[in-house]
Design a protein around this nucleic acid. Structure first.
Lengths: 212, 212, 212, 212
DNA sequence: AATGAATGAGCTTTCATTCAT
DNA sequence: TATGAATGAAAGCTCATTCAT
């Protein structure tokens, strides 16, 4: 309705501030006033760049989403075989969680989840602003080529690539989330190694070694 | 501060109502008034049983947590070998998600996540009311015996049981969450099967079939 | 949606306060906070009795409307012939305007007009909350019996009673409004007399005295 | 405070835009931004021509006022006898209301009333920006010559011309306002005729026909 | 023990106005 | 002269919580 965006740099400053504020106070406790203050602008100015708090949620979400994409892309396009890529992705996840935890932005992850949930409830009720499911499936899709290549080259087990992709991404996601909440209790390097073992070889012993 | 609990049945009715309300409206949009109404009691009465909204969050969380425990316990204690138990757990997860989705309570899961995140933020800031990490680790622990038995009996790969347990539970959690948000796009039975394959055998082809 | 009304006395206190506040500050400048303060209650309490500011407008309007009705009714039912009633109504209008002007409530009249206009704009745009036209026609209607009787008894000119009623009421209304804004410039008693002359005999000289 | 006026044409464009905006949205809901947009200029430019929103009210009012004058003047100066002029004025009022209603500007009338009320409240409180009463009396005065001539020529009843003028104008004003709000319910031509009858002959039957 | 009327802190959003360009 | 980005005061409304009954 209104033209909105003007100074792209300021818009980004607002998003950055919003991430900090939401991360610290939560989605619904994070105040526009605080965001404005943190962005070094007037309260009203926020509304020159976003139509509502809800819109800021969406922007934060997309920002995070883009970063996620940007983070994974080099990995996916790297000159490695599929198995190595899986390992690299696992390394990357733990490393970036570690980095997140050590930086002051550790709660970014929380907001992402929160907005995800928030948006998901909305999408259940029809508003569908963030087109949640779609966003998620877009993420799955960036992994698919790796899986497909692995299957094609007969390195990976001959399973439906869509399903395998879904499983790999979502399990890694769960891992990341819980690692985020319990990192103190585990040795990262050890966890990395075992995770790789688990993902690549599964739970069971190699068949020939078991009488089965 | 106050003596609180009295009529245990009424307390439960409040929790049940709270779950419904929070599930539908979200944690911060869910109103005490609505909860009271749904529980068939007066608004003030809620405060005879809970000191604050925050306390209701905790109660809802623990309720969910207990249900989770109660749901898994029979599986864990069933007379099956570890491999079968893993399969049963995977079946159970998908089945209970399906059931959740078909019932009108599908969003219960969301609240659990929301409270988890909410509580986690609090725990970061020190209040630690829900003792989040501890609660999670308690969940991991109920799975540990299965993993330990699997490793001991040499069915499972010889990995650190604590780490393997963590990985198995958290990956399954991620799976469940995403399945919840994308169930429309996958065939449950097929997904179940591939999940089992994945968990039990891992991504890679069996060693003997690959020249390696 | 909500049951609303409780303490009828308090509801009236809010309306009274609202009238004072709106009268002094205008419809859109009149603040809920001020109304609450004037009514001696908390800001939130206002919303226990009214769902919105708009609803207060409506209540104020109807309050005024009822007072108007109540004021006119005795006149209409009085044991007088139609001509006398017209005179009595004219007296009543000037007298009540005078009274209004001398009391501290002199601006009640303004709010009534303002709400009328406000509501009318809304009704043009479809919301129609106050059912404006209907309210007005209800007022016209309480005068109709007098006119009808006057016409029937051949005291009044043989004109369509609906139209004559409309003309008489609306002209008196204009008179009242302007008198309200210019009362300083006219002698009330003299104005009363001339108004009666005008209404009863019209502008022109009696026919027999003019050659026509 | 500032020198203000520059491009007279632009000033008029602002007023025209303001009328449209206020008419549609109401005085306090009509936004400067909308006015600027409608006038095809920048928001800031409005303040080069008017010091405040209040000032725009005044300008709109005077604009309306001038139009009113301009509309009536030809009638007043026309070569007709006083009785005919009264009839012509009544015709003119209904016709211009009809025209207003048929054009998309039907709410102009509302703003006029609104500003009148708004300004009147201010004048009560001392600021007196619009010099309301004076403006009104100026309007009455343009009618006075007609009434005076009517009385002098013995066509009209021998009443105080100031008072009679006041009565005639203000009653017609009330008529117009209510007609504006209820025009759907009356046949314009019939209403015109009866209005003329009423104004010219009054309510009562000619004397000779009543025994009196 | 149960209630629901009362409360006010608090929040999002609006918008007239300013002022650097 | 014209502009529109920036602003912050302001206001309607919400709702967890209290407390007299």
């Amino acid at each position: 309705m209104t033209p909105l965006p003007k100074d792209e740099e300021k818009r980004k400053r607002i998003i950055t501030a919003a991430i900090q504020v939401f991360a610290h106070d939560g989605l619904s406790n994070g105040k526009i006033a605080t965001i404005a203050e943190k962005a070094g602008i007037g309260k009203g100015t926020v509304y020159e760049y976003f139509n509502s708090k809800e819109d800021i949620f969406a922007a934060v979400f997309h920002n995070f989403f883009d970063q996620l994409m940007t983070g994974y892309l080099p990995l996916i396009e790297a000159p490695m075989d599929p198995k190595q890529k899986i390992e690299a992705i696992i390394d990357f996840i733990y490393d970036s969680m570690e980095q997140l935890l050590q930086s002051r932005q550790s709660q970014k992850w929380l907001i992402f989840m929160e907005i995800l949930l928030h948006g998901f409830r909305d999408s259940i009720r029809g508003s569908d602003k963030l087109v949640l499911g779609k966003a998620l499936r877009d993420i799955y899709d960036i992994f698919k080529p790796i899986i497909e290549e692995g299957i094609r080259s007969a390195n990976f087990r001959q399973l439906d690539p869509d399903y395998l992709t879904f499983i790999i991404f979502t399990t890694l996601d769960g891992l990341a989330l819980h690692y985020f909440m319990n990192h103190d209790y585990y040795d990262t390097e050890k966890l990395k190694e075992i995770t790789k073992e688990f993902f690549l070889r599964g739970i069971l012993q190699p068949i020939q070694e078991r009488g089965d």
